[in-house]
Computed example of a mutant assay.
Amino acid sequence: MIRSFIKIKPLQAGKFAGIILTLGLGIAGFLRPIPIDYSVGSPLLINTQFLALIGIPLLSLVLVGIVILETVIGAVRLLHSDRSIRSHATSNLGYSLARIIESSVALLGVALLVLGVGTLTSSSLPAPAGVGLLLGLMLVGIGVLVTSLLRTLVELYFHVRQRR
């Protein structure tokens, strides 16, 4: 079942693997299950908490771009199809709901990013405020990752159910 999902929906399978990897590395970065030897190189470059703090928002931003592109392509396909929007949404209600939530959180993430960057450029922030802003962006990034993970799991569920 999983192999057929990868073959039929490679983008969703890739998103799933990327999300699991990002969340796993992010959690591992903060919990530090592997001790770090600071005698090698610069401690800032191998600090796993720092990498998780920077990596999650950046990878989530890439995922937001993919989700928005997916949403636009799906909307164009829906508008050019013979089925009505209502019949399409009600035929797969769980999937439609998951896709709407994922797209909404992605668009909210873009809006919060624009507001955050606007705050940074409008005035100089003290360091604690900048860290707070980065933590806020990390929380938005985790929200994007989790909603995309849920949508991918819903899509996997419908794929497995359809195969039976």
Rank of each mutant, 00 (worst) to 15 (best):
Q162F: 11
V114D: 11
G14T: 02
F5W: 10
F30I: 06
P35R: 04
V117T: 12
I19P: 01
L31W: 00
G29Q: 05
L108K: 00
R99S: 15
L150K: 05
N47C: 07
S124R: 02
I68E: 01
T71Q: 06
S60P: 03
R151H: 05
G136T: 05
Q12Y: 12
G130F: 01
P126F: 02
I56Y: 06
G143S: 13
R161F: 10
S122W: 07
L156M: 08
L115S: 15
L153V: 10
G94M: 09
G141D: 07
G26P: 02
L31M: 13
P128M: 04
L137G: 11
E102F: 00
V105L: 02
S4W: 03
I8M: 11
I20A: 13
R99D: 11
A127F: 14
L139R: 10
S91E: 14
G14C: 05
S84V: 05
M138I: 13
I20M: 08
S81A: 15
L69R: 14
F50H: 10
S42T: 07
S96M: 01
R77E: 14
P57C: 08
V131M: 06
A75I: 14
A129H: 03
R163E: 11
N92G: 06
I85E: 06
L112M: 13
P126R: 04
A127D: 07
E155M: 15
A52Y: 06
L21C: 00
S91H: 15
A52R: 00
L25K: 00
Q49E: 11
T48D: 02
I68M: 04
I142S: 01
A13V: 05
Q49A: 02
I46L: 09
Q49R: 12
F30H: 03
I66L: 06
V67D: 03
T147Q: 11
K15E: 08
L59I: 13
I27V: 10
P10F: 07
S81E: 01
L23I: 15
E155D: 13
G29K: 04
S4I: 06
S103H: 00
G14H: 03
F30T: 00
V62G: 09
Y95A: 05
H80P: 03
I20Y: 02
G109H: 10
S91P: 03
L150Q: 00
A106D: 02
P128F: 00
T121S: 09
S124V: 04
Y95H: 12
F158Q: 11
I54W: 01
Q49K: 14
I27E: 01
G118S: 15
I8K: 15
F158P: 02
Q162A: 15
Y157L: 08
I8T: 15
I56Q: 08
Y38K: 05
L45Q: 07
V160Q: 14
V67P: 01
Q12H: 15
G143T: 03
V154C: 06
V76A: 14
T90M: 10
Q162G: 14
A127K: 09
V76W: 14
